[in-house]
Design a binder for these strands. Structure first.
Lengths: 256, 256
DNA sequence: CGAATAGTGTCTATAAGACATTATACT
DNA sequence: AGTATAATGTCTTATAGACACTATTCG
């Protein structure tokens, strides 16, 4: 347990009768499917700690009374050019190892966001530097993330993988209406497996309230047009869509 | 989004080039089984905000460099008289609504701890005021908790309920060695259901590495002595022990 | 008509749930 | 002997996984 003596950022200058305080940041694991592959939105850091390296989008709380989820919304808009009200957003966890930020004591609350595949990457926005990166690039070590963001991404990934089984999270990867094939592609990308089309159709439609037929017709495609669905009222899946062996973690995450 | 102007606790006195900082607390949801019923450890608050009301054990970070998990360990010892190294402890989530603490901006990182049923309640320790309370008392509204601790407890409960399905968490409620009946009692208490004894035996023993026979013999009991087991090497359960209908949440928790 | 994608049915194997009796130790 | 708890087997039903062909639209 190292007693930090940071030089600039921490408010250790506060009077002694004030309890030790920390700086709070919000970091975002934003996942989407692009070209049938799971991608995460990363930014290239422009300033000093880890300058030039890839990192999760995020930043400090704006003012003393800013709600943490509100800060996540704000960063989503500012750094990713995404509208938080149309995304799935959930808290992932808090990362507060004393030495995780070389500037001093910075505690980060991480959020997991799921975005539908967007027509074009975020560009022209404030989020000039944001780039969709295949998750596989990070997992394989081809891209190394700043701070403990590699760990945060791993945790976010496993969270998403697990929630696909028991919740309707997969629909958050899809546009407002979607086909069953598109939904299957989500499961296949996130779990990195191939699923049997017939069994998938059967199981998905056996879960009451998971997806409901969309009144409108079809969409332009080469081949037989698919029926469209939208997310149903149920967020908890009964029965669950269980991952095949091989898409499971070997140890339980989230300890300590 | 209310701009807070707290009087004493927040470090808004810090110079302007310092970013807004928050005070961090750690709160603990400590669960155990007592008399076949799920209990949570609560403390009666001795100081001003919510004085005299029940609350989760917890407290502020000790010094500027204290690790958050270390603070959870410390509070576990100080407020509950429990040895953190022998417990299951995992992060539950972070609660940071700007108005959750009337003293000002206080963000709390909540932890979920699972303790084996202890021979006697914690007493004589530093934790004079700690009292095991049936979770049902809180859920039914007979006990109302300070701050947003009711919400935190609800989240902790659902976390525990869910993890019983897919992980070996139930063994954390048991002593080092335990019988299958004791393990079943854990599931029944946490899920608030009755399970069939024969099916439970079959399913528990069908999960490789979940529980392994303890070499030692039996224990004093009225009736046929039971075989003893201890937790096996697997923390992830394949196949899972699924909750019966009725022990499931209707909506998914953990949103935002 | 060919290419491309959507949609469907059956069989088999495994798991889940309902159910009652025997076994062992203690008093 | 009686009491209290532990341990076990079978049948039925439901779910999971493997497997290949027909349907519809577009160019």
């Amino acid at each position: 347990m190292v007693e930090q003596r940071p030089d600039r950022l921490t408010p250790s200058h506060a009077p002694p009768w004030i309890r030790p305080a920390v700086l709070l940041t919000v970091d975002l694991v934003i996942l989407t499917i692009r070209a049938a592959e799971l991608h995460v939105l990363l930014v290239e850091r422009g300033v000093d700690p880890f300058q030039g390296q890839l990192a999760l989008p995020g930043g400090f709380l704006d003012h003393d009374g800013e709600d943490i989820v509100a800060a996540a919304h704000r960063e989503l808009r500012q750094e990713a050019g995404l509208d938080a009200s149309r995304l799935h957003l959930e808290q992932l966890g808090t990362y507060g190892a004393p030495d995780r930020d070389p500037r001093g004591r910075v505690v980060s609350v991480a959020y997991l966001a799921i975005a539908p595949g967007l027509p074009e990457p975020v560009a022209g926005d404030d989020a000039a530097e944001a780039v969709w990166t295949p998750v596989e690039h990070v997992l394989s070590g081809r891209s190394v993330l700043a701070f403990d963001h590699g760990l945060i991404l791993t945790d976010g990934l496993e969270r998403a993988r697990a929630k696909l089984e028991h919740t309707a999270l997969a629909t958050a990867f899809c546009a407002d209406t979607f086909t069953i094939s598109e939904l299957q592609a989500v499961y296949e990308a996130v779990w990195s497996v191939r699923l049997d089309q017939r069994n998938f159709y059967r199981k998905v439609q056996a879960v009451p309230g998971f997806i409901v037929p969309a009144p409108s017709g079809s969409r332009p495609t080469a081949g037989r047009p698919a029926r469209l669905f939208r997310a149903g009222p149920r967020t908890v899946l009964h029965p669950p869509l269980v991952r095949p062996d091989g898409a499971h973690p070997l140890i339980e995450l989230g300890e300590q």
